[in-house]
Design a protein around this nucleic acid. Sequence first.
DNA 1: GCCTTTAATGACCGAAGAGTCATTAAAGGC
DNA 2: GCCTTTAATGACTCTTCGGTCATTAAAGGC
Lengths: 212, 212
Amino acid sequence: MQAGSPKWRRRAEARPGEIVQAAFDVFAEKGFAAAKLDDIAARAGISKGALYLYFETKEDLFRAVVREAVVPNLDMEQVLAQTTVPFPDLMRIVLARMGQMIGKTRLGAVAKLVIGESRNFPELARVWHDEVVSRALGALSTALAKAQVRGEIRLGDPRLQAFSIMGPILMGVIWQETFTPVGAPALDLELLISAHGDTVLAGLAPRAGVLK
Amino acid sequence: MQAGSPKWRRRAEARPGEIVQAAFDVFAEKGFAAAKLDDIAARAGISKGALYLYFETKEDLFRAVVREAVVPNLDMEQVLAQTTVPFPDLMRIVLARMGQMIGKTRLGAVAKLVIGESRNFPELARVWHDEVVSRALGALSTALAKAQVRGEIRLGDPRLQAFSIMGPILMGVIWQETFTPVGAPALDLELLISAHGDTVLAGLAPRAGVLK
DNA sequence: GCCTTTAATGACCGAAGAGTCATTAAAGGC
DNA sequence: GCCTTTAATGACTCTTCGGTCATTAAAGGC
């Protein structure tokens, strides 16, 4: 063994973040049950024993991973609360921001985890619903309701309109996460968002004749 | 033990179907790795050993379960190939049929499985892409392209338009499968389909002014 | 009613992997 | 430089669960 290279270093502050990051990668790839703590430890550059200095159990670590990914989604509510911006502009801003967020936060992988493990970890599904999905959908619905009052868009259940707006983005994310890795053609999310924006905004516009 | 009640019965023909059904339930609830063969056997009303008379391994059984759910999706292509029906009518028929299919085939549960296990069973993701998703999307895209040529809808990439049509349905299914069981308000899929049909058909209509 | 065939059982085995802990060594105070 | 503290190790245990197989008994032919 080299003299100058210590077997390991003590870095109590840096560890938790690194571990969660490594765990995220492994959980995202394998799912909860098939993920091995040895793998996570190896990827984090430590031993399995060290994991237990920072997390009580495997479940604990999993919860930390999924909860970690919750945080950064709150700012979209403020955008949607803006009341001076015309609705279509607002919507394009929100859609564009979604696109960026998906790119940088690996939101697709988290979605896969939450969806796939929702029966085994119902409390995580609940957290994600309450903190992320329901909030975003609520803010969007509110914005839609206001736009209806102002006559900017057609009347209708705002909650269902929100599905029409968000659904295709979710589908795009799932496509990329599920089918592109097994050989399906890649999907340009920016393009999808832009094209879908055209379609759905036209669809929500007042007086646009319904076909037939 | 009762005299008249045999310990078990020999029913070689009926077993495979029952096993796959039971396995579907357990896999859908737990995911592949967390599903226990003992549980599947118990639910099928047989012993674990008997499973191995019909399936080589756990993976084998899982593959059978996911492949089983592939079959019934082919008829939508014929509907979409109809060339005499006006596009909006065609679309409403397709959407309605999707709704029925989701109700009767537990499509949501399968989707969850395919999405969640796509990294561990890439060949299943591939099968599902090739046999179901890509085909349905392809047929829909073709119908959209034809409708564009006829001037029934606005010009644009048909593939992306297909995402705008299908995305909200997928989102609805995932919602029901993931969030409703943990306390989120139930979603009326029929209603979503109808409302989304209004929106997206208006959005695809030619000359409908894009807002702003 | 016996005999053959084979569906079905369930106790068992072995591997895998979550979680533990006695031991080691880095860091830092004095 | 020594000593204390504590981060980190990795060999170990123990449980769980996929898969096996010798044994049992249902079904059906003769």
